[in-house]
């Protein structure tokens, strides 16, 4: 009984180590794939379209609402202390440092990550990857690498849009609706937000999240069991694992980046 459960733990550890190893190998090969400049670029653009452009709408709408909610909640609390001019800085700092990269990455995992997994899983199920391999074309170069880079590029861009839209949403609620002074809103924001410490660190966060989410999505697609049920399970895994990784990593990144602030 005891031995059996020990055996289970050992087996589980080994198999998860093996899958981490395989995933790293995929990542490594995708990153160092020697791209064919012209057609590689065209494939990248096509993937940025399906990964990034198609996510703009959900990102923009969510950003807008999150900004408005922040404006509303922030105003009710701040006005209790007569500090409602600080609304701009509250919205901007919380968006740029935390909510933007994290919520953006979570939405991205749900919208683009799951779609990537499903697409690659379906290509595996219908033997498209195998047939590519049999034609002497490495699917990691041809299919995985452009998708990986597209995700990697798209998420930071989406996060920027997300932040900007959220701040505009907060401005609309705070200034146009609740009557915070427009000048105070912007000037407090500007004196509180530092370009290097806040905005660039936020961008770095979203680059890290972009890598992690696309990596997980691509690997789960490649590793899916080639049945319709397997694809469903892989898609779920993508969303769950990337959400957990994003939240966990965010803690560490915050601890490293904002320790001195």
């Amino acid at each position: 009984m005891l031995i059996a459960s020990l055996q289970n733990i050992g087996g589980g550890t080994l198999s998860s180590l093996a899958s981490i190893g395989r995933a790293s190998l995929v990542l490594f090969r995708a990153i160092f794939a020697r791209p064919d400049i012209i057609s590689g670029f065209r494939r990248l653009v096509a993937q940025i379209y399906s990964v990034g452009v198609l996510s703009i709408v959900i990102i923009a709408i969510s950003g807008f609402f999150i900004g408005m909610v922040l404006g509303l909640q922030g105003y009710t609390i701040l006005s209790r202390f007569g500090a409602d001019q600080a609304l701009g800085q509250l919205i901007a700092l919380s968006m740029v440092r935390e909510l933007g990269p994290v919520v953006g990455a979570l939405l991205f995992a749900g919208r683009a990550g799951s779609a990537l997994t499903a697409e690659i899983g379906l290509m595996k199920t219908t033997e498209q990857l195998s047939s590519m391999e049999m034609m002497g074309v490495d699917p990691v170069h041809r299919v995985i690498a452009p998708r990986f880079w597209a995700g990697q590029i798209s998420l930071p861009l989406l996060t920027l849009i997300f932040n900007a839209v959220a701040i505009v949403g907060g401005y609309l609620v705070g200034v146009d609706w609740l009557g915070v002074d427009s000048g105070a809103f912007w000037s407090n924001m500007q004196s509180a937000v530092n370009f290097k410490e806040d905005i660039l660190n936020g961008v770095i966060k979203s680059v890290v999240f972009g890598t992690v989410v696309t990596w997980i999505a691509v690997y789960q697609g490649l590793n899916s069991v080639p049945t319709s049920e397997g694809i469903g399970r892989a898609t779920t895994k993508t969303v769950v694992y990337s959400s957990l990784c994003v939240l966990g990593l965010d803690f560490f990144l915050t601890a490293v980046m904002f320790r001195e602030l």
Partner: peptide, 21 residues
């Protein structure tokens, strides 16, 4: 994709200029 990139650059400029001043 071009529009997407332009939007992102605009957002970045807004964050840099208007938000962080």
């Amino acid at each position: 994709v071009g529009i997407f990139v332009v939007l992102a650059i605009a957002a970045f400029l807004m964050l840099a200029l208007q938000v962080s001043g």
